[in-house]
């Protein structure tokens, strides 16, 4: 056997081990759950509610934060400014800090004693233990995924096209909406999905901000610590299935958009 073949064989085997490591536990979990257990889990209102809560809160957090994050990403892609590296470092911070620490930080930020908490309670909202608080915790740990993907997307849009549009008298805002955003659309949507998925799967930060109402990762943990592995597993499998369906669905939509969506009448 020649050395090139051996080389590729060894590398492929190593890759196979990694794939097995990812797929193995997941498949194992699915196979150790009987259909009956799964149906029981689906039948529980508490489980259904928690999954629904997780989905909509993460979606809402992603949408609300996208309003600020997407224009910010364009700025980061286009402009060089002093301390830009520092700003980029700050954006990546939530990825590297322990998520329980992130939860503590967010809790301090929104607790009744904080300025934000006081403002919220003045209009009758208690952010702690509220879906809004959960959304903030989710957004805190997942926003870098959207910003970084959108920034990469905007960076690939030729600046010349934006200049051409300006030259034709279009306002800066119109150029952003009609040229930059549609051409970076694929990356922006991809970042959107990543942020949504990351927010949905967050446990550490959310559990500190709001044990109740329980999102799916929290209920899985609660079942496990109170009743053990066998009781946590069906909920985990169900949530996993829902996440996968959403993930695949959104990916399919993005692929359909293609590189340059349909003609934009703006």
């Amino acid at each position: 056997m020649n050395s090139t073949k051996t080389f590729y064989l060894v590398f492929s085997l190593l890759g196979g081990l990694i794939l097995l490591f990812i797929i193995g536990p997941l498949v194992g979990m699915v196979f150790s759950t009987s259909p009956v257990q799964l149906f029981e889990a689906v039948g529980e209102a508490e489980v259904r509610n928690s999954i629904w809560l997780t989905l909509w809160v993460s979606m809402a957090a992603t949408m609300v934060f996208a309003i600020a994050a997407v224009p910010f990403s364009w700025l980061l892609a286009r402009k060089n400014f002093r301390f830009k590296q520092l700003v980029l470092g700050i954006i990546d911070l939530p990825v590297v800090i322990p998520h329980s620490a992130a939860g503590i930080a967010v809790l301090g930020f929104i607790s009744r004693e904080s300025a934000v908490g006081k403002m919220a309670s003045s209009i009758g909202i208690d952010l702690v233990g509220n879906p809004a608080g959960i959304a903030l915790a989710m957004a805190f740990v997942s926003i870098p995924f959207l910003i970084n993907a959108a920034r990469d997307g905007f960076a690939t849009v030729p600046e010349k096209l934006e200049k051409a549009a300006l030259n034709m008298g279009a306002s800066r805002f119109r150029v952003f909406m009609s040229i930059s955003l549609p051409l970076a659309w694929r990356s922006v949507v991809s970042g959107f999905i990543m942020m949504f998925a990351r927010g949905m799967s967050e446990f550490g930060a959310v559990v500190i901000v709001a044990y109740h109402p329980m999102i799916a990762p929290v209920i899985i943990y609660e079942r496990f610590s109170s009743f053990g592995l066998n009781y946590a597993r069906p909920v985990a499998v169900l949530f996993l299935a829902v996440c996968l369906v959403f993930f695949i669905f959104l990916r399919l939509i993005t692929n359909r958009i293609g590189t340059y969506g349909n003609s934009q009448n703006v």
């Binding site: 300006l166 030259n167 008298g169 306002s171 040229i179 549609p182 340059y260 969506g261």
Partner: peptide, 22 residues
């Protein structure tokens, strides 16, 4: 004066056609 208010039309060497529009 900002670019968008100048009323001078520039034809780019590589045309700068918007690829996502008809």
């Amino acid at each position: 004066v900002p670019i968008q208010e100048r009323e001078v039309g520039l034809l780019f060497q590589d045309f700068a056609i918007f690829p996502h529009m008809s």
